[in-house]
Design a binder for these strands. Structure first.
Lengths: 130, 130, 130, 130
DNA sequence: GTGGTCTAGACCACC
DNA sequence: GTGGTCTAGACCACA
């Protein structure tokens, strides 16, 4: 299975699923037109409720990431939109600030911090459009 | 007043307060031993309920950022135990991963992400020892 | 019901709840992964307010004893990280010192104290590996 | 100075003072009839408010540990009483249970636990009557 | 005046 | 149904 749920992460389950599928699409692990696992199938694979996967798929459809047609498997759609840049940035910036605050209080240097960022960006954000 | 609440931000109020105080401590705007505004005082200043601020203070105490004693004002705690590089790095990396996950989920590009990091590092981590 | 509140005890209600649940976990009465009663359910069972139980659950989550996920019941968490003998011992010793301070302050003799220890060790720590 | 305040200890300041003086008496560091430092003097020495020391002295007088006479220094009195054994024991036992729960969850063995107890009892509870 | 606890009731998001 | 947040008001113990 490509995807996995992290129980220690407080992020809602359906958001984790959404995130992972979007990530897989962005990284090219899932190509345009390729079909996704069925709702029940993925739900069982992840050990979550059917409704949770369903909600994730709905969300992905609302965001234009996948296409859903009654009776057919979900398929990766063509493009993504920018969404409300304003609030998006606010959330990310807040989390970065928390990380920096923690770093400052624990005596981590700016260089070390940047090195961490590089490693994580390489792992999580590569292959994404600007 | 040093702090401010953003009502449009879906982040819980008490977390916003926690973040801001941690940030102020990290940036040196609040020094060790300095006393914070009283619970009621800050609550009124921010236009939130007394209990909301109280919850934020409790959280900050649990994280070792401030010291709370019944009948005395809250004070910025001295940061003892660097606790060993291992654990420190883990903590910071975990928070950075949170930020990156959030970014990935919201479609922020690696470049944008790095730009955010640069701005924040400049503000919070400049002139720190390695 | 496994738990009970002692109204004559000046210890805060939520702390009593925390202690009892931690105790139950330690003694194996509550196993890893087992789900705890819902907040409202336990509150009614104990005759306390919903928020009081909620506070106890939050505290237990912060201490890593239980896992909380929105919409799901609370579950006993798996105890990862033995964290190194050093830290572990420090934690236990600190709590024992609290107990001894309390005893000293209240005029409990060393003999009495030891008798208490014997009873509790027999109940909670028997058959554990070194 | 014989006494010291521990700011990291959440125990109220006046209780810490009470505890230390009772301890000093029990260990013989303060003999019967010996005079204690004046309220202002001790307050300054400990870096606490005058009222806090005053409250501690009052408490000690109520418990029969010291004698207070207007215009004279406080003096160590003859004997102590058992107090409400019931609730006293409850508090101590609860703290010991917390320590044992923590130990059990962290994998500390019964033997190790007893060794910790021995060390702490030797340090904090020696020379006390049953 | 300070933090800390408890009750109460409303509303939200998640499952 | 679940946990999570916020408001509100009362009361307590400590400094």
């Amino acid at each position: 299975m490509l995807f996995a749920i992290n129980d220690r992460d407080p992020t809602p389950l359906f958001e984790q699923i959404v995130s992972q599928i979007k990530g897989a699409v962005a990284e090219g692990k899932l190509e345009i037109g390729q079909s996704l696992p069925g709702v029940r199938e993925l739900a069982e694979g992840l050990g979550v409720n059917l409704h949770t996967v369903h909600k994730a798929y709905q969300r992905l459809r609302d965001q234009g990431v996948i296409g859903l047609r009654l009776g057919r498997r979900a398929r990766v759609a063509r493009r993504d939109r920018p969404a409300g840049k304003r609030i998006v940035n606010e959330k990310v910036v807040r989390r970065l600030e928390d990380a920096a605050s923690e770093a400052a209080m624990l005596g981590v240097s700016a260089d070390e911090f940047r090195r961490f960022v590089d490693a994580i960006v390489a792992r999580k954000l590569n292959g994404r459009e600007t």
